[in-house]
Each structure stands twice: as structure tokens, then as C-alpha cells.
Write a protein that binds this DNA or RNA. Structure first.
Lengths: 142, 142
DNA sequence: GTTCCAGTTGCAACAATGATGCATTTGCAA
DNA sequence: TTGCAAATGCATCATTGTTGCAACTGGAAC
């Protein structure tokens, strides 16, 4: 768990001021199991009264500085996670499963993908983000 | 190549009136190699003066009727193609490759996906759309 | 502790895509 | 030819992303 002081240091070492909204955004993202979107963050911090453009720029600025990683899971929103989100979640290193009903995103373990025919070189190099869409178990049962 | 008469029949057998805008939309989609988005269609028919909400409803209504298939290729827009777009392109039956630089979408041949660990049942049943994102060859070279 | 100013924020506003209500128009069947 | 349900045109709203600009503030210099 990162302390408030750690988060301030994180911001300052990236030449960003340690403002209240940035700290709040980092606290929200820290420990989140999957990347959060701007709407997610806005909703989570709604009671604090910060303007959505402030939170938007908090996210984009921290992503530009390298503190956050911006990922596109294909659900029509940009998502952000701590760039040093060690271990578990590492952006596009593993496939994501997106439920087309509830929108929930989950992480899958590394897959083997075998594709026949001619494909872009990036595919064979593993330089691709893989996403599967379908109904999650909860929505399948519902 | 479907004739104008064929398209009128297609609409009427689905209980939809054969209006000029619907025919125009079908003519645009017919023969298109990959699914077109609402903005694509609006732009293609700009000179005809149809309202974008008319074209929007043309697409959604024909998709609801089963004439069109709506696919989500993950590029933040809904795309539509003729539902009987035989052979080549069949919605989500095969994986798509989306270039994150130029936005171009291409079709890949069927893949084998092997995933370890616990996954949603839909994955093992093959009820998932698979998408790979990365740089296409042209953008890799550029 | 006080001051200062570049970095931030709050607010307004715009763009693109998706979506809907409603009065007017029109396809098409009787 | 006519009547009416279906479809259109127009206005309008929601969501996400984005930017301009005046006011405010973090934090370094003093």
C-alpha cells in the first residue's frame, strides 16, 4: 500500500505538483484490480466536487508523465492504471475479457494464439493486445 | 450484385418499407468489403441530404429486422454489414485485427486460442469475438 | 513566514457518436 | 385515389473526449 507521502513523491519525481485531486485519483487507481475509465474516476470522486475536466487532465497528464498507463480495452472508453502496477496487471501483456452485457472487464491468463494465413508482423511478434468479448458467466445465467 | 428490386423485396419481406434512404444505405453497404459505421454511411450519402438520425434509424431498424448485422470491432463505433454478406465476412466468426495507428480493420483467419486458468464459460464454448490490436505492417514501416 | 508565478483548476464550450420525442410527410395497401 | 401507420426531419439530449481562458494555488525562493 502506497502512503500519501509515497504518492506525493511519485508526482514530484515526475515534475507534477502534488495536488489534492491528483492524489485522490491515484488513491482510487491504487489497488484497483482492473484499469479505471475517466467516467469511473469521476463517479468515484463525485462527492469531492472536482470538475470532470480536472480529473480528465489529471489522468492524461499523469499518463503523459509516465505515472499512469493508458489502455484501450475496446469498450469505447480510455482506461488508466498505475504504470508500476507491478505484477498482476500489466496493461496489454495478457488478454482481457469484456462482457458485452454488463461491461465488466476481467483479465485472462496468457493465451496461445495460433493464426493461419498471412497476418501483420506485429501479431507474430506478440506486439498485440488481445481481447475476447462475450457474455460473462453472471450474464449468461441471468 | 443485388438489383434495386432485390433490395426492395429484401426490405418488404422484413416488414420494412422500401424508402429511398434505406435503399441508398443498402446500396452503400452492399459490396463493401468491411462493415461500415453510421458516420461512414452519413458521409457517403452526404450529398443526398438525408438527416443523420434517419440514417441512424435506417441502420438500427434494419439491424433489428435482421437485414443487417451490427458488429463492434472495438474502434468506438458500431459497424453494420449486410446480414447475408455471405462467405467472406461473417461478423464475429473470425478474429479482427485493428491497427491502433491508422484504424484500419482487417480480417484474420480462424485462430486457435488456448487459455489457461479459469475463464468465462463463453470462452470455452467459442462464443466470443476475438480482436487483436497493434500496428499494421504499413504503420510499422512508417 | 511571505511572496511570486508557472502549473492547475473550474467553468464554459465544442466535437463526435448514440439516442429519442414529436409534428409532418410518405409508402403502400385497401 | 385515399387513409393511416410507418418513416422522416428537426430539435434536443446524453456520454466521452477535448480545449481555451481567467482565476487560483503549490511550493520554491527569499
Amino acid at each position: 500500500m502506497l502512503s500519501d507521502s509515497d504518492l506525493r513523491d511519485l508526482l514530484r519525481t515526475h515534475d507534477l505538483r502534488a495536488t489534492q485531486s491528483r492524489l485522490a485519483v491515484l488513491r482510487i487507481l491504487h489497488g484497483q484490480p482492473s484499469p479505471s475509465s475517466h467516467p469511473d474516476v469521476t463517479e468515484a470522486l463525485a462527492s469531492n466536487g472536482w470538475d470532470r475536466s480536472t480529473l480528465y487532465r489529471n489522468l492524461t497528464d499523469m499518463a503523459a508523465a509516465g505515472i499512469l498507463r493508458r489502455v484501450d480495452l475496446g469498450d469505447r472508453v480510455w482506461r488508466y492504471e498505475l504504470a508500476n502496477a507491478s505484477t498482476q496487471h500489466s496493461g496489454n501483456d495478457h488478454p482481457h475479457f469484456l462482457c458485452t452485457a454488463c461491461g465488466d472487464v476481467s483479465c485472462l491468463e496468457k493465451v496461445d494464439v495460433t493464426i493461419g494465413g498471412s497476418v501483420p508482423a506485429a501479431v507474430n511478434l506478440g506486439h498485440v493486445a488481445i481481447q475476447l468479448r462475450g457474455l460473462c458467466d453472471a450474464c449468461t445465467e441471468a
